[in-house]
Design a binder for these strands. Structure first.
Length: 293
DNA sequence: CCGCGGGCCTGAGAGC
DNA sequence: TGCTCTCAGGCCCGCG
């Protein structure tokens, strides 16, 4: 599922029931997800207050009063569902990911305020890991991540510099979390389309000979900002598994201009092209060969 | 450094 | 109805 907008949507849904609240109990319903749980996983969480819930790239980070940080990654199919205590919740219609039963609820947080937060992940590509805050800088999962695409450090100059001399494709460069952290297959396709840049274009062509950013770099950065902000506003994109923590669907998939639109007409004004799909670095790329150059 | 293929998992959808 | 095949918002590893 989840790229930055989906993870941010989940963060905003969990924040009110986690931040400043005490975890009463944690149930793990299997030995692990992608990796086995740490032996003291539940013990390091139970009974402690969550001071804050943040996000770095596609990771959720729960700051505990103990000085530990719980890192959570949703993999491809992870989702969280919040159930509020009797009388406090009136979330409308629930759309459960995949099965109606909760077979794939692998981790359940019982908050002292009565909220129950379930982590569901059919494919189990997600993971959770507790790291001491003092050791976060050395944490392999986070080390080497590039800047946040919506943060101040990410601009045309930074992107051009990171891409200078790269012979790899623009698509591959943007998917590389060391270049910029948080984009995935959908939003890379969408941002390239919106900036009229070909996914096949060599990444180095965002910079001039001195490594200075050109108009392509500036347009691409703008397109990334625009598409991510719009997707967050829409609660992310629900194709298969992504749900907001209320169970509601995200709806940015209705705003896709290229992703999942193979064979359909290009939406660029006056463009007569047709959206094509091909495989790049093992993933589907959707694009318009007519207006993306 | 790079691209590529395989692996990790389950489930949905298409085709037969 | 049911089989087989392909594909899926991520990411890591090893190969050449």
């Amino acid at each position: 599922m989840p790229e930055l907008p989906e993870v941010e949507t989940v963060r905003r849904g969990l924040q009110p029931v986690m931040e400043g609240q005490r975890i009463a109990r944690v149930d793990t319903r299997r030995d692990g997800l992608r990796f086995p749980f740490q032996k003291d996983f539940a013990a390091r969480l139970q009974g402690y207050v969550v001071n804050g819930l943040g996000r770095r790239a596609k990771y959720l980070m729960a700051d505990l009063e103990t000085g530990d940080v719980l890192l959570m990654h949703l993999g491809m199919s992870g989702s969280f569902r919040v159930t509020l205590p009797e009388g406090e919740s009136t979330p409308g219609e629930f759309h459960y990911p995949r099965s109606e039963d909760r077979t794939h609820d692998h981790v359940v947080f019982h908050m002292q305020n009565g909220a129950v937060i379930s982590f569901n992940d059919p494919r189990r590509f997600g993971y959770m890991k507790i790291v001491a805050r003092a050791e976060l800088d050395a944490e392999p999962l986070l080390k080497g991540l590039g800047p946040e695409p919506l943060g101040n450090a990410f601009d045309a100059a930074m992107l051009a510099h990171a891409c200078a001399g790269k012979k790899t494709s623009l698509k591959a460069a943007l998917l590389d979390q060391r270049v910029v952290a948080g984009l995935g297959n959908i939003y890379v396709c969408e941002a390239l389309f919106r900036s009229h840049l070909s996914p096949k274009r060599q990444a180095s062509t965002l910079a001039d000979r001195k490594g200075e950013p050109n108009d392509r770099a500036r347009h691409l950065v703008t397109a990334i900002h625009t598409v991510l902000n719009a997707a967050i506003k829409a609660g992310g994109s629900s194709l298969r598994d992504h749900r907001q923590t209320s169970g509601e669907l995200g709806y940015f998939q209705h705003s896709f201009l290229v992703y999942d639109r193979e064979g359909e007409p290009c939406k660029t004004p006056k463009c007569t092209g047709t959206i094509k799909r091909f495989t790049q670095n093992g993933r589907s790329t959707f694009w318009c060969p007519v207006c993306q150059k």
